[in-house]
Write a protein that binds this DNA or RNA. Structure first.
Length: 386
DNA sequence: TCTGGGGTCCTAGGACCC
DNA sequence: TCTGGGGTCCTAGGACCC
């Protein structure tokens, strides 16, 4: 709609969790460090005062790598990789448990520093944000330098920033010079800077779509831009095909949104060993109880209630089944969530041992907030009774 | 010993209503 | 009895992101 050219920044913290840990354990700087694993041990103190760290190669158990330092990435370890595989690749890497409370605190600090400079901020999770810089006076390079300096002063951490005419290009740009980089992309830079990149660099093209594009002989964003729409529609939904073409041409009009309301709240857990439906019945019941209580706690903190209760079961072979139960009215207490979850669970065909159990509440509303639909219903009732 | 946990959005089919 | 659209709600699964 707006004819004013936009200027959007994407700011991405560099190896965020790992960098927060290095602030705490500076002697690990320059070493391959991996964070993750559900049962990684905290470093302990030797009698002589030196710190003893766990070795990745000694890890036993389930779980994935949450993040890794650039030195560990050089050994082939990356986030979401299974811990056991990572342990084979880099047995001598240092292993640290994740400390999300601490990461959230640093997240708050860097966002607070940024918002002082560029108040139009969209939260995209713990370590990245978009900023709409369109109304700010300074040039882009100065702004990027100012933002990086502010983040460093607030946290001691570095970040990478991309500035471009929209979110799509800003996101790609922030990744072009990492860590500690600044990349400015203008309209004229599309063919030279963006088109040579692989299609997977576009936010929204994941492994599956990338594979299908590659199979069509499309590797780069430029090749995608040159592909007739018909060919894309043969492979993808019409909607996705249109989006692919727009993205390849660097077109994206999504606004930088400062507020959004939660759509769902969920908790899930993967067991250390797969549980037997009957033999481990009591354990499963206890875990289900705990999950419902945690979801209820999260909902109460957010001040929401919801009417669609979902359960998720993942079996030993990684098959995942979900069942939803929609109630006539919103609920928010653990007991009501638990009752609906039991109904859902009763509809899951139990075929094999259970690896994961999850509970989700969707269809969220803020109770007490004026709701047009509810008011409409009230009005209708009044009419009926007149 | 492959494959965490918290999310969003899309698709497709069925029920139901007009 | 058969045939139609359009719209909404619900469900299940999947892709994707951080």
């Amino acid at each position: 709609m707006s004819r004013v050219p936009r200027r959007v920044a994407h700011l991405d913290m560099d190896a965020f969790y790992a960098s927060v840990e290095l602030l705490r354990y500076p002697e690990l700087k320059g070493l391959p460090v991996v964070i993750g694993g559900s049962n990684a041990a905290q470093p302990s103190l030797a009698p002589d005062g030196t710190r003893l760290y766990s070795r990745l190669g000694d890890y036993v158990g389930r779980g994935v790598v949450t993040t890794a330092t650039y030195e560990a990435r050089a050994l082939g370890v990356h986030s979401a990789m299974g811990m056991m595989k990572a342990a084979r690749l880099a047995p001598d890497a240092i292993l640290l448990p994740a400390d999300f409370t601490r990461y959230r605190e640093y997240s708050r600090l860097f966002k607070q520093a940024v918002v002082e400079i560029a108040p139009h901020m969209e939260d995209r999770g713990i370590d990245e944000i978009y900023l709409d810089l369109s109304t700010l006076a300074q040039d882009s390079l100065t702004l990027a330098q100012t933002l990086k300096q502010a983040v460093r002063e607030a946290t001691g951490l570095s970040c990478s920033i991309g500035i471009a005419p929209n979110k799509l290009l800003a996101k790609i740009a922030s990744d072009l010079d990492k860590p500690d980089g600044i990349t400015l992309i203008g309209e004229g830079d599309l063919e030279r800077r963006i088109w040579p990149l692989p299609v997977g660099r576009i936010n929204g093209i994941g492994p599956k779509a990338q594979q299908r594009l590659n199979a069509m002989g499309i590797q780069t964003i430029g090749e995608l831009a040159g592909t007739p729409l018909d060919r894309l529609i043969e492979q993808f939904s019409e909607r996705y095909a249109f989006w692919l073409r727009e993205a390849a041409h660097g077109r994206d009009d999504r606004p930088v949104v400062m507020e959004s309301s939660p759509k769902s709240v969920s908790r899930e857990t993967t067991f250390e060993r797969d549980l037997h439906v009957r033999r481990d019945r009591e354990t499963l019941a206890r875990v289900l109880d705990a999950l419902c209580q945690r979801v209820a706690g999260d909902m109460s903190r957010k001040g929401v209630a919801g009417r669609t209760i979902g359960v998720k079961v993942r079996f030993h072979d990684f098959r995942t089944v979900t069942r939803d139960v929609t109630l006539p009215n919103v609920v928010s207490d653990a007991a009501a969530i638990r009752r609906a979850a039991s109904v859902g669970l009763g509809r899951v065909p139990m075929e094999g041992r259970i690896r994961l159990l999850g509970v989700r509440v969707g269809g969220l509303e803020v109770p007490g907030e004026t709701n047009a639909q509810a008011q409409g219903a009230d009005a209708l009732q009044l009419d009926l009774f007149q």
